[in-house]
Design a binder for these strands. Structure first.
Lengths: 343, 343
DNA sequence: GAATCACTTCAAAGCGCTTTGGATAGCAGA
DNA sequence: TCTGCTATCCAAAGCGCTTTGAAGTGATTC
């Protein structure tokens, strides 16, 4: 059943039927009701492809998920971000178009998705420090918004980011205040912008405390549980092992916890651990009280807000760019404690 | 630049240009080259909306992600499944259309997405035992495939599932063989089909060992880390605490580990833990050797295969249904060991 | 020289909607 | 009676592509 058939059965024009169904004012209420009843009766649903062609709007937002054959790893925060964004999309009548593309194909995938009408806007995930995607999308002249930032990119663009530098600076400072001066860093991959900024924050806190950075207790890598585990074991072998650790996510923190427990060290007493907590839904940081002392910011909320900002940008007549910088919140758990002189 | 403009510049018909670009044989090679060059020069990209309207194919697969306001939790395996499926889609020229919809809206979202042309097929996630979506989609007459099964549904449908019953039966049997006879179950939500089947497998193994099931050491709930933790603490308070635990995912298993370590119990010696391992990319079960003894099946591979099966079904002239039942593999880790008489 | 054929190319008809620019009718006001 | 207005409704023109059915061109065959 399409619009033409429906209008024929009703002895009305397609115009009137279309307007009746879409809530336009210039149609008699009695007619509207008649149309609505018939639409229900014949189980009529407008064809979305035709509608988007006619309106010029896809009502769809593209997300392109890079996927590298080597790592095979999905971004930890991806699912929760998507869930948050998806929620907002559905309340605004949008849906989400995901493309999982290999690293090397990513730019062409953007082109394919973006150039002509498949989506009305794009969200860029996990920007690297000098991310080529940003200039590329700006060229394509399609609204887009970056979750995170790309420090080395000069093209202006819309973004939402957490102040990663300040977050980790604050966290590191907290450990310094507890008396720790030998603090290890178990960071994400530092080609990623967020990881670089977190490293900056860590270094900055050390510097202002007059402590020289020591590369032998700093790690950078893909944030899974074994990475946290092996890095920790490794750091504990150091000639002068750290008394506190800072890590980029709750996932490696779980690995840290495993390593420490295996070595018989108690978190918060023998060694302090501070992590960044994205509030991943299935790995909450404890139920009532937090377990890990953490810098916390909800990635789900970030997804929600990114979606809102992008939709605003799409719908605004003058598409000025939007940026938003959030601060992570320090929450105190049981994984940190003052430096004991005995250690 | 659209097809008409491009064809005007080339002094060719739209037909010829379209055919040249889409690789049809009835076009002179010299012409084809001329068209291809011009397309590149003017940066021409076909409008996807128009194309899908004309061809009747959306080249897109829908995934509908239920989202309940209470739980806010994303399915643990979602990201990896999506990554696997997305890989296959992109090699076949499809993309993925995700809708995150509230539980109560889900059926209407299917209708909206499916009824008319937004997608060529649908993947159903996390089926419940008597899932209304299946009959609904069958009615809509659109190809769809269920990841998992719905025991109580009588409508025939395509699915790919792991033999959850056998998996957990095998796992439980392994614990029984180690001498355990007091085995707790920390299951997923049993309104979900997979959780129900796992419960069945657990019960079946106990039954064949002549052991009566004891509801006081069986739990069902949403699989996050604190759920594993609190359930374990709870089970340890039992008058006759279990000497072994079976759990539905590596995520609650992490909570179990935390609880046990907090109680000073060593996994594999004082208490045995067996989990189901979906091979989630950022929570691998150890690096080289497995940590948890587990029933293992890759959800990413499941995503890949579901995508393949659905695409086959979409493209086949006679859309017969496809089903596939996989077996999980028992891997032995360090989290299990023989029952010590002392405990 | 006419007929046949392969090879190219094209005009035009969709696909199913939205939206523009009237048309028509009824009614009040002049 | 005529005008102007409002409330309804409609015909037709897109949106930008694919695809059908046909036509033009040489070359080949009879």
């Amino acid at each position: 059943m399409n619009l033409r058939e429906l209008s024929e059965r009703l002895n009305l024009s397609q115009t009137t039927v279309s307007r009746a169904l879409n809530g336009y004012p210039e149609v008699n209420e009695a007619t509207r009701k008649r149309v609505a009843d018939a639409a229900r009766l014949y189980n009529y649903r407008p064809n979305i492809r035709a509608r988007t062609l006619a309106t010029g709007r896809a009502m769809s937002i593209g997300h392109i998920i890079p996927f590298s054959k080597q790592s095979e790893m999905v971004n930890i925060v991806f699912a929760d971000f998507i869930a948050g964004a998806g929620e907002v999309y559905s309340t605004h009548g949008y849906n989400m178009s995901l493309s999982v593309v290999r690293d090397e194909d990513e730019l062409s995938a953007y082109r394919g998705v973006a150039e002509k009408g498949a989506v009305d806007g794009i969200i860029v995930h996990s920007p690297a420090r000098n991310d080529p995607r940003i200039a590329f999308l700006a060229d394509l002249d399609i609204p887009f918004l970056v979750h995170g930032r790309a420090s080395e990119v000069t093209t202006p663009y819309s973004w939402l980011d957490v102040n990663n530098t300040r977050a980790i600076e604050t966290g590191t400072q907290y450990l310094l205040d507890l008396g720790h001066h030998r603090i290890g860093l178990i960071n994400g991959q530092e080609r990623m912008d967020f990881a670089q900024r977190r490293r900056d924050g860590y270094l900055s806190a050390l510097r202002s405390a007059g402590i020289a950075a020591d590369e032998t207790i700093m790690r950078s890598g893909e944030m899974n549980e074994p990475y946290g585990y092996t890095s920790t074991l490794d750091l504990l072998e150091n000639d002068s092992p750290p008394t506190a650790l800072v890590t980029s996510s709750i996932v490696p923190a779980l690995g840290i916890r495993r390593a420490l427990e295996e070595r018989g060290l108690k978190m918060g007493r023998d060694i302090s651990v501070l992590c960044y907590d994205d509030e991943i839904s299935y790995l909450p940081n404890g139920c009532d009280a937090p377990i890990f002392t953490a810098m916390r910011s909800s990635v789900r909320n970030a997804g929600r807000r990114c979606a809102e900002m992008l939709i605003e940008q799409i719908n605004s007549a003058t598409p000025e760019l939007r940026t938003e910088l959030w601060d992570a919140e320090l929450v105190i758990g049981t994984s940190t404690g003052p430096l004991l002189s005995s250690v």
